[in-house]
């Protein structure tokens, strides 16, 4: 112990900025983030249903907003968030039955979660744009 000043300038415990993010950590944060986004995203479904129940005028307005480029962009993001949280939930079910806890299994599940959500979202929109 040379002096007390050296102790004060020592780094504190490692935090996010010096941490190499494991893929499981990123998916854990994304699961919470997407859950929070879906929480407010329910307002999109609520607005659509309430407008439909209110009458043709209100419904036209909501339809126009959702069908605009900005609306479609939001819906695209919403669909990815939904699919990502859905797949993340299935990942939790795997753990709930006691499976998938080894290092390779957790890493693969996490990668599958992210890759699956992106692929499914793109496929969904491709199908919608092609067949609708």
């Amino acid at each position: 112990m040379a002096d007390a000043g050296a102790k004060a300038s020592r780094p504190l415990s490692p935090h996010l900025q010096v941490y190499r993010w494991p893929v499981t950590m990123l998916m854990s944060i994304l699961h919470r983030f997407t859950g929070g986004a879906l929480y407010f995203g329910t307002l999109l479904l609520a607005a659509w249903l309430i407008a439909a129940a209110s009458g043709p005028r209100a419904f036209e307005i909501v339809n126009a907003i959702y069908g605009s480029w900005f609306g479609l962009l939001v819906l695209f993001g919403y669909s990815w968030v939904l699919i990502h949280h859905l797949l993340g939930g299935l990942r939790h079910f795997v753990w709930d039955v006691g499976a998938g806890f080894s290092k390779p299994a957790r890493d693969n599940l996490a990668r599958l979660n992210l890759l699956g959500s992106i692929v499914l979202t793109v496929l969904l929109w491709a199908a919608v744009l092609l067949f609708r």
């Binding site: 329910t42 309430i50 439909a52 129940a53």
Partner: peptide
């Protein structure tokens, strides 16, 4: 609100 809208429809 969403359930009410759904039932109203």
């Amino acid at each position: 609100s969403t359930l009410f809208a759904l039932l109203k429809i």
